[in-house]
Amino acid sequence: MMNKRMNKPILNVSGLTIDFGGIRALDHLDFDVQVTEIVALIGPNGAGKTTLFNCLTGIYRPTDGEILLACPKTGQQTRLNGLKPNKITERGMARTFQNIRLFSRMTVLENVMIGRHCRTHSLILGAIFRNRKTREEEQETIHKSYEILEKVGLAGQVNELAGNLSYGAQRRLEIGRALATEPFLLLLDEPAAGMNPQETAVLVALIRQIRDEGHAILLIEHDMKLVMTLSDRVVVMDYGKKIAQGTPDQIRGNRDVIKAYLGEDVG
């Protein structure tokens, strides 16, 4: 908990609660994410991890609690509750989806170009008359998107339809598409799910590289080896509550965590 990089958090969640009818999927959740930190979010199936992401990104509206996002450059803090998903992405937080949600009948490059949408401005008249500003913007969009594809290792498949990519490549494309929105905080929902060990190794390197370039990362993952090697800090959830938080080593020995995963009292 006593992280060395302990300055102002870029994401601060306090008392976050959401009810679906009678089910309390998130129950007074508190946690934060610091600049250029990799935080892993773990917990058994149905613990509410994806629900938390949906609340953070504005897809669900929380019943109670507060989500604050602070831009590390300007230090400006905004309350995200009630903002639309696109406004939240504009503020600098982007995500990937557990069940891949690519634009499957668009090309790989176009998928990433969609991510640039909120950083570009041309409108109807620009599209029709294709004036110099629009042309330059379009070129910039293409180039930045291509650079991102090089980074995630998909430069060879720019013109492929996204739906035709292999599973691992689709997950990397989702990361690339999120990166195109220029986030400072990236939320990854089970990025390694369904990947083989080689693909996972490539992914780990990619996530490290993204962090080293100055992004903070909050990731949900069931692959414990990945979580333990990659993350600076781990938050453990069960039944919508935070049950533990700490460095990977602290979590490994935590009795509550073992109990939540094994479902019984041990030792």
């Binding site: 990104t57 897809i59 639309k84 998903p85 696109n86 992405t89 504009e90 982007a94 995500r95 989806f97 949600r101 690519l102 634009f103 499957s104 009948r105 668009m106 969609i114 991510g115 949408h117 909120c118 950083r119 598409r177 999120a178 929105t181």
Partner: peptide, 10 residues
Amino acid sequence: EDEIACQAMG
């Protein structure tokens, strides 16, 4: 293609 992803991409 996907309304939710579209919004989430800004």
